[in-house]
Design a binder for these strands. Sequence first.
DNA 1: ACGACACATAAGTTGTTGCTTATATATTGT
DNA 2: ACAATATATAAGCAACAACTTATGTGTCGT
Lengths: 108, 108
Amino acid sequence: MNDVVAQDRIFQALADPSRRAIFESLTRGEAAVKDLTARFDISQPAVSQHLAALKGAGLVNRRRDGRHVYYKVEPRGIKPLIDWLAHYRAFWPEHVARLDQLLERMDK
Amino acid sequence: MNDVVAQDRIFQALADPSRRAIFESLTRGEAAVKDLTARFDISQPAVSQHLAALKGAGLVNRRRDGRHVYYKVEPRGIKPLIDWLAHYRAFWPEHVARLDQLLERMDK
DNA sequence: ACGACACATAAGTTGTTGCTTATATATTGT
DNA sequence: ACAATATATAAGCAACAACTTATGTGTCGT
C-alpha cells in the first residue's frame, strides 16, 4: 500500500465529523463500542461502521476482551497525514520547515 | 467561523483525490483554470468546482488577470490541519510534541 | 459592437456515504 | 444448552458528492 492510498484512506476517514468526534473520544482513552454508542447519538451499528473506517485508515486499533471490543488510537496512524503536510512544507513560513527534523526522528 | 468548522471544510476539501491532485499541482506554481483543465482529465467546470471547494476551505487564493483567473496555494490555509494534528500530539512519540514550538512561532 | 476566449454557475445524472432496522456471530453466566 | 449481552454484518434508503452538458458572465481584440 503506497503513501497515496494511505493518505486517501486517512483523509476519507477524517472527512466525516462523526468519525473525527469518535477519534477524539478515543484519544481520551481506550473505549468499548458500547461506551462510544452511549456517548454519541447514533446507533451501535453506525458506531461500528465508523470504527471500521477508522481502523481501515490505520487510525485505531482493536482489542477483544470477552464480549467487549476495545478500540484505541494508533499513534503511528497519523503519520501519512504528517507526511502529506511535510510534502508542502515549502509553502509554510520558513521556520516551520523544521518539521523535517521531527519526521526524521519519528522514523527512528 | 470557529476551528471545528474550518477543520471540517479542510478535511472535506482534501478528502477528494482530484482536489488533492489539483492542490499539489498548484504547489508547483500559480496556474490558471485553463492550465489546470489541460493537466487533468476532467472538464473545465469540474476543475472550477474543485477550485471553489479548495478556496472555500481557505487552501487557495484567486487572482484575476484579464480573462484568466489564477489560483495559488494559500500557505496559511493548512493551519487548521496543523492545529488538529497538534491537538493529538500526546499520542505521537514524545519528541514530536515539539511541534508546539513550531506552531507558536508560526503565529508570530 | 461583436466574436472569441476564460471562467463560473445551473441543472441533471450517477455513484457513494452515512444512517437506519434487522439479523448474524461471538462470548459469558447460569 | 440457553438466555442475555456485545459487536459485526446485511440490506435498504435518503442525502450528498462529483461529474457531465448547457448556459451565463466577464474580458479582450478587432
